[in-house]
């Protein structure tokens, strides 16, 4: 069936099988492979994207559910390759990533946190990250990155 939605601010119209997951549509059909799939039980959070402004797990959502909506992936965080979102800069500056696999989901989740809570403390960040697993960093520099990214987002707004 045909669906239309906004993907990273660009209109998209695609034919999908109804059983297609949003993560598969984004990765396989639309070739935006920044959204990763790290588990099959909706826990790791590598696939987190924004749908209508909210962070969701794209591996646990049908693509057809995005029909008429707005989807943003990690590729849509910065306007051009030259730019970076303040949260992307913060992750790089604070060594908030190692292998890079969880990173897109972490970024999307972190930005949603700051939208809901512009100045989160460490405990709030750690609690919010319940749905994002990282196997490399021990989370310490992710937390540090999000504190810095939130500050930069506040300064920018």
């Amino acid at each position: 069936m045909q669906i239309s939605f906004s993907l990273n601010d660009e209109p998209v119209t695609v034919d999908v099988d109804p059983s297609t997951l949003l993560s598969d549509l984004i990765r396989e059909q639309l070739s935006l492979t920044g959204t990763h799939v790290g588990c099959d039980t909706s826990q790791c959070g590598a696939c987190v994207v924004h749908v209508n402004g909210d962070s969701v797990k794209s591996c646990t959502m049908l693509a057809v559910s995005a029909d008429g909506g707005e989807v943003r992936t990690v590729e849509g965080l910065s306007k051009s390759d030259a730019d970076l979102h303040p949260m992307q800069i913060a992750f790089r500056e604070n060594h908030g990533l190692q292998c890079g696999f969880c990173t897109p989901g972490m970024l999307m989740s972190a930005i949603d946190l700051v939208k809901n809570n512009p100045d989160p403390n460490e405990a709030e960040i750690r609690e919010w990250l319940e749905g994002n697993i990282c196997r490399c960093t021990g989370y310490q520099n992710i937390v540090k990155s999000i504190i810095a990214g939130a500050a930069a987002m506040r300064a920018a707004s």
Binding site: S42, G45, D54, S55, V56, S109, W128, E130, G131
Partner: peptide, 9 residues
């Protein structure tokens, strides 16, 4: 309940 992404769906 669950995590924030689950709570959004």
């Amino acid at each position: 309940i669950g995590d924030q992404q689950v709570r959004h769906r």
